[in-house]
Amino acid sequence: MKVRELEAALFDAFPREQAEAWDHVGLSVGDPADEVRLVRVALDATAEEVRAAHAMGANVLVAHHPVYIEAPDAFTPLASDRPQAGAAVFEAARLGLSVLSFHTNLDRSLAAREALPARLGIAVATSLEHADDPATPGYGAIADVEPCTLRDLAARAAEALDVDPRVWGAPAAKVARVAFMGGSLGHFGDLALRAGADAIVCGEAGYHVCQDLAARGLGVVLLGHDVSEEPFCQVLACACERAGIAPERIAVAERTRREERPWWTYTGGRLA
């Protein structure tokens, strides 16, 4: 299979038209005519991931996050005065590696809808974006759960994803319907309230957004952008296999352990 054929198959799984107009999806760098030897699947398309892919013998990196949304001014080795995206493209070109990204088009897929809730053992009913139409692809997810407290939900997420969530809302608040949104919450908290959710589990959201939602009765469980979207790597790996890449030629980047994440939380004298 050639790189262009893998790209086409992945666009069949995650249609380009489902991506936001501002997004950069598909092939960012590489030779479309190259034969696919080994695929590395990762959340981010960074210079570090490019080098890791090359070191293991992969000639294709399939990532969720694009190398860039807007192209940097130059593609050079990593330097403090230039965006790191330029270094990722530089390294990929230098090493002969193709980089494919599937971002907001994957976010809207049925597979992505189920990925994060499944880590918590929760089955979803519909998307958050199109709550009244379960068959339509859309951002996020809505699920009914056995009644619990917001503290219980946060503990469940912490154990399932190896993270210490930051939580907005009363710990004893009752939760029977949960919304999920991988990555940034943006304006989707309002959709969660409209769908009758008691809490939303997401990657990140601003202070004033969380303050507003909590005051209106929606608990917010913040996992970290990367933690909330790590399950998407398996979605991409499965799509590569369905495209015709043999399982032994697909390597998923290992889940980042909390002590290896590029961000950390200081709590009571320890790194959490």
Rank of each mutant, 00 (worst) to 15 (best):
K2A: 05
R4S: 14
L6V: 13
L6D: 07
L6W: 00
L6N: 12
L6C: 11
L10C: 02
F11Y: 10
D12K: 09
F14T: 06
F14S: 01
P15K: 12
E17F: 02
D23F: 06
G30Y: 00
G30M: 05
D31H: 03
R37G: 06
V41L: 13
V41T: 07
A42V: 11
D44T: 11
D44E: 08
A45N: 14
R51K: 14
A52V: 03
A53L: 06
M56H: 03
V62S: 12
V62H: 04
V62I: 08
H64G: 05
H64N: 14
V67M: 15
I69A: 05
A79P: 06
A79K: 09
R82W: 02
R82M: 11
P83L: 10
G86Q: 09
A92M: 07
A92P: 00
R94P: 01
L95V: 02
S98H: 00
V99L: 05
V99N: 06
L100S: 04
L100N: 07
L100K: 08
L110P: 12
E114H: 11
R119K: 12
I122Y: 01
A123H: 09
A125Q: 11
T126V: 05
S127R: 04
L128G: 10
D132C: 09
D132E: 15
A135N: 11
T136A: 14
T136M: 14
G138H: 06
Y139R: 15
A143R: 02
T149G: 15
D152E: 10
A155S: 15
A155F: 00
R156I: 06
D164A: 07
R166H: 10
R166Q: 14
R166I: 15
A179V: 01
A179G: 15
F180M: 01
M181A: 10
M181E: 01
M181L: 14
M181Y: 01
G183V: 00
H187Q: 13
D190A: 15
L193F: 00
L193R: 03
L193Q: 04
A195S: 05
D198Y: 06
I200M: 01
V201H: 08
G203F: 02
Y207T: 07
V209S: 14
Q211V: 05
L213V: 00
A214R: 08
R216M: 06
L222I: 01
D226G: 15
E229V: 11
E230A: 13
P231Y: 05
C233T: 15
A237P: 02
C238F: 03
C238H: 12
C240Q: 09
R242T: 08
R242W: 00
A243V: 07
G244P: 05
P247S: 10
R249L: 01
R249P: 01
R249I: 02
R249K: 11
A251S: 15
V252K: 12
A253G: 11
A253M: 06
A253E: 14
R255S: 14
R257P: 03
E259K: 14
W264C: 13
T267W: 14
T267K: 12
G268Y: 09
G269I: 00
L271Q: 12
